[in-house]
Design a protein around this nucleic acid. Structure first.
Length: 256
DNA sequence: ATGGTGGCCCGGCCA
């Protein structure tokens, strides 16, 4: 079972690229973030034509998450489900082929120490609480998405150049660590424990071509599921060409 | 590499 995640940066602007990618990458489950699509405007038919069921949790202009699956899509829940402020549509969960799948779009944080940075840390705490009350780490669980956190210094092009900015601070990494401590493993790092491979590059200044990026798109798997992981890839080819997202898709093959 | 691009939708916000 191939599980993938991709921050598409507007599904409306990216639909043809997403369709093309699905056709050649053949994911069984694809989590998307920054769909920027209201549920009513979600292109359900485009995905059903490719053989996928879909669920969208979006309100239009900002954020928005979705899951498309060709191995079932059941027990859908959008948001934290407890009235907690979600800071926009940033979480949707569904059961797909025996795996509890979560598509997450962690808040960016903007400025270290600021209101939105504190909101990012709070959101990550809510995600940990959500896992505590809705899932079991002994079950097959996947938490996939744009975490807006580089787990380690080797996950950014130059730690020193980013000093003082978000995505690399210790509180953010500790909050990510609390989520992993629930019982999740960074599947890409499990399979590729060497080298610098990034999943996001700023559109500006030719950063993609200069290899100035970060690995902030993660597939976290519960431990037993992670042990079945046989292949993982960040598909940087999808960052090339006409009208790309600023993120590349990440995928992992597992056997639930 | 302290400036730049792209998506939202048309003046700025957000990433």
């Amino acid at each position: 079972m191939r599980i993938a995640t991709w921050n598409v940066n507007s599904l409306n602007a990216r639909l043809s690229r997403v369709e093309e990618w699905i056709e050649y990458a053949q994911p069984d489950v694809l989590c998307m973030q920054e769909t920027k699509a209201a549920d009513a405007a979600f292109p359900t038919m485009a995905f059903s034509a490719l053989g996928y069921e879909s669920v969208s949790h979006g309100d239009g202009r900002w954020n928005g998450v979705a899951i498309v699956s060709r191995v079932g899509l059941d027990d859908i829940e959008g948001g934290f489900g407890n009235g907690a402020d979600e800071q926009g549509c940033r979480l949707v969960a569904a059961s797909c082929g025996g795996v509890r799948v979560h598509s997450v779009y962690v808040p960016n944080g903007r400025e270290v120490g600021g209101e939105f940075y504190l909101g990012k840390l709070a959101w990550l705490g809510e995600l940990r609480s959500y896992l505590d009350r809705t899932a079991k780490p002994t079950d097959p669980v996947a938490v996939c998405g744009d975490f807006n956190i580089a787990p380690e210094d080797r996950d950014v092009y130059d730690r020193a150049a980013l000093e003082g900015s978000t995505h690399i601070t210790e509180p953010e990494r500790q909050a990510l660590g609390e989520i992993e401590a629930w019982g999740l493993v960074d599947a890409f790092r499990l399979l590729y424990d060497q080298g610098q491979l990034f999943s996001w590059w700023d559109y500006r200044a030719g950063n993609f071509h200069k290899h100035l990026g970060m690995r902030i798109d993660l597939i976290l798997l519960s431990k037993a599921l992670a042990e079945t992981a046989s292949y993982a890839l960040i598909d940087r080819n999808a960052r090339k060409g006409k009208q790309p997202s600023d993120h590349a898709p990440v995928l992992v093959d597992v056997t639930p």
